[in-house]
Structures are given as C-alpha cells and as structure tokens.
C-alpha cells in the first residue's frame, strides 16, 4: 500500500470537506474492495476519508411503500434486520449471501452501490426494487444510477447516504457463484411490485455491468412464474467472458437463475 493519510469523518459534511481538501481522496466504507486494491498497489489515494463513524448513515426504517437503509449499514446488519426481513425478505437473504461472514461484518450497502462492481449483489436488488439512491445532495433513481462498469451517476465527492427500496409484493434472488472469487457469475433479482409491474435485474454477467432484462419483465408481467420464462434467453454478446465462464455459459446461467429466483420468492438461493 502506498503512503496515505487517514481521516475519520463524524458527519457527512465533514466527510465532504475532508474529501475536497485532498488532491486525490477516496471514501473508505467497509474497505473490502478499496483496501485489497490499494494493498496490491493497483490503486493509490493520498487521503482516505473513513465514513464508518457517521451516525446518520446507519439506520434502517420502513415508511409507507419504502424501506430505507443507511449507506453505512453493513451487510450483516441488513441480513439480520427484522425490518428488512419483514418488508423484503429476499433483500435480507441477498445481504446474507454476500461474500463471507467477515466481509458482511464490514462491507456496507453504500460502498457496494457506489462502487458498482459488475459482480456485486446489491445493484441487482436496487434496480429490481426500483430503488432511490440518496446522496448528500440529491436523490437518484436506480435506473439512472448505474451507468457503466464501476461507474455511477455520482459526482466527484458525492456520498451515498442511503438507499430507499420500493417494497414489492413479492421478490426473489438467485445467483451462481464464481468458484474462485465466489462473487456471482450470474445473479438475478426478480420482483413484482404492488402496482403490478415486474422488474428483473441481472448482475455478474453483463459486459456493461448490472442491467434490467426487459424481455423477462414482459414475459413475467402476465404470469409471474418460472414457466413464463421458458425458451427465453439473453444475448451472449451482452455477456462477460473469462476463464470461469464464457458469454454463452453466462447467458445460460442468467436464464436458469431467473427461473430459480422465481422458485425462491421471499428468499435467496446461492449455488456454490
């Protein structure tokens, strides 16, 4: 790791200020993406602004049709939260399937969303649950938030303070894990919302990161069941390929995981 300065912020405002004062700062949340990259000297920042002590980013609350989770809430806290389990059980289950137990104790929702790693789990839930990403300055619809691989609509220095998920009528998540890294090679979150709309979001597989699978959404709007997806597949040209899975294989996994997500509504299935 290159030399750096560590700053712990106690409020969002302080974090913004510390960030602005530095020449090339980064926010430090759970650190489980940033620190490994910095340790391997693949990334360098002169200042790390730690968001871990900001109390305003910690809460979980339900109001009306929305479930709002603070950006600083850890995956373990989401997985264990009675509010989340009650409102969107498959979201709690998704959080409980991220990484490993130690990662879940440190990794945060805000960090995961802001990084937009193509293999992260949360972006699929954010898209399928028509989430609103709350930052220190504005609200961004999930549909507008994830712009490209590792890229989001966030401005320089903007902080994800929380995410409001729309509470669906029912939802499910299924993923197939990469045998080495254990990140999803294909993760599909399906949700039927109370207004009858269906959303299907895919992570881990697309060559441009998380995406909504519109053909599946159409197919499922009439019949929200696995059989409605029979014969439906994504275009392998849109898929990533690497030593663990070719685009064709990932395309197959997307179709299979979508069906399985429908078979595990109210929970999450992780195949490992």
């Amino acid at each position: 790791m290159y030399s750096l300065s560590y700053r712990r912020a106690s409020s969002v405002e302080e974090a913004r200020r510390l960030f602005k004062e530095a020449s090339d700062a980064a926010y430090l949340a759970g650190g489980h993406t940033l620190l490994p990259a910095m340790k391997q000297r693949l990334a360098a920042h002169d200042v790390l602004v730690d968001l871990g002590a900001i109390a305003d980013m910690k809460g979980i609350g339900v109001s009306g049709d929305g479930l709002t989770i603070g950006g600083g809430v850890t995956h373990a806290e989401v997985a264990g939260s009675q509010e989340v389990k009650g409102a969107i059980p498959s979201l709690a289950a998704l959080a409980g399937s991220i990484g490993d137990a130690q990662v879940r104790h440190r990794g945060t929702l805000g960090g995961s969303i802001a990084n937009n790693d193509p293999a992260a789990d949360y972006p699929a839930a954010a898209l399928a649950l028509a989430a609103t990403i709350r930052t220190d300055g504005r609200e961004i619809a999930a549909d507008d938030f994830f712009t490209a691989l590792y890229e989001t609509a966030l401005e320089e220095g903007e902080i994800v303070t929380g995410v409001s998920f729309r509470i669906p009528e029912t939802a499910g998540y299924a993923k197939f894990r990469n045998p080495a890294s254990r990140y999803p090679m294909a993760g599909v979150f399906v949700a039927r919302h109370k207004d009858g709309t269906v959303r299907v979001a895919v992570t881990g597989a697309g060559n441009e990161g998380v995406f909504r699978w519109s053909e599946a959404e159409q197919a499922l709007s009439g019949n929200f069941a696995a059989e409605a997806l029979a014969g439906l597949s994504v275009d392998p040209d849109m898929m990533m390929g690497d030593i663990h899975g070719s685009p064709e294989y990932r395309a197959n996994l997307v179709a299979v995981m979508a069906r399985r997500a429908l078979g595990s509504l109210g929970s999450a299935e992780a195949i490992i």
């Binding site: 045998p179 080495a180 890294s181 030593i243 663990h244 490992i272």
Partner: peptide, 24 residues
C-alpha cells in the same frame, strides 16, 4: 493454473485460482 499465450499468469490470486472451501 492458467497462463495466457504470452506467459502472463491469469490465475494469480484467489479471485481466479479456485481453492477448495469447506462447502465444496
């Protein structure tokens, strides 16, 4: 273990070299 044709090691971390875990 996978090298590319030019001799770069592709499986150079546990993210790409799959180690057996307890649930395997």
């Amino acid at each position: 273990c996978v090298y590319d044709e030019g001799g770069q090691l592709i499986t150079a971390t546990y993210n790409d070299y799959a180690m057996p875990r307890a649930h395997d």
